[in-house]
Design a protein around this nucleic acid. Structure first.
Lengths: 153, 153
DNA sequence: CTACATGCAAATAGTTTGCATCCAT
DNA sequence: ATGGATGCAAACTATTTGCATGTAG
């Protein structure tokens, strides 16, 4: 995945107040970096790496370590979802409502274009896998890869 | 995933000659390290990290870099399959016959026990996802996570 | 005021690579 | 003999952490 992911640049940006409210309610401070990071995530609604988030931050910016720490916090609070496209770099997406909580992606292995996928691994099948093996609290990690329309001549 | 993955130690070890034959046929040398690595993979039939492979090598061993280079080669030759359990470390499994080519795993997030899963994402559904988005050559990466029987008291 | 958050730099961990030497063919 | 393979060390990338300082509440 060489080029930075392509997004159909940033439609509907989200209101991040539900996120800041949640942070405040659990005694976390709403600092400049945190607010800026949430705004970036609310604006770019695609999986972003920590470096991409940092680069998208308005002028002043903050330290990369702060982005990492913020993502840890947001992840623990359930405010972002973490994705793994198999290239050794974590990506994050803001989660503000239940609806968008669990979903997957279709990634172009040539240009890194990302499409959000609503289909999911069949619940009944997952349940069967869990039961057959005596596992509890089973979840899955699923991403699709292929060549996008624009990349096959 | 703190502890090293637990395996129900190493049943049926596989004959690796199909692999060495294939390497030779494509003008790759069968060196000591390569043979040893293939034997380790044939013996431990579970996803192994490069470090685990190195550690499992008989006495003399070789350099970690050689393990990495060997896995690249074996992957390119289609002789191993690469898995990503989301902990930032690649894992590999020997692939000697078509049957075992594509499969998934159920991983205990507590003790790292790994169970091989035969179920797969429904082909028709994947095809639909590909078509709907105009993608070609679509594949998927899928792993299951949960708590194994021995880890829930 | 005070605990939590941040910046900075150093430390980790996984993986890759340059280069001189070695060895399978 | 000879080009690919290896060992060793250094380089890289992503991520984490210690510590002194800064600031939200």
């Amino acid at each position: 995945m060489k080029p930075a992911s392509r997004h159909c640049c940033d439609e509907k940006r989200q209101d991040i107040s539900p996120a800041t409210d949640r942070l405040r309610s659990r005694d976390h401070k709403i600092t400049g970096p945190r607010r800026a990071i949430l705004e970036v995530l609310g604006k770019h609604r695609h999986p972003m790496t920590n470096k991409e988030i940092l680069a998208a931050l308005p002028s002043a910016q903050c330290d990369l370590a702060t982005v990492y720490r913020s993502m840890h916090l947001l992840l623990k609070m359930g405010l972002v979802q973490k994705f793994d496209f198999g290239d050794g770099t974590a990506r994050f997406e803001l989660v503000l409502d239940k609806a968008q909580r669990h979903h997957h992606h279709l990634v172009c292995t040539n240009c890194a274009k990302v499409v959000e996928i609503e289909e999911c691994f069949p619940e009944a099948l997952e349940q069967k896998i869990a039961t057959q093996n005596g596992f509890r609290a089973v979840s899955h990690r699923l991403e699709f890869f292929g060549i996008c329309p624009e990349c096959h001549h």
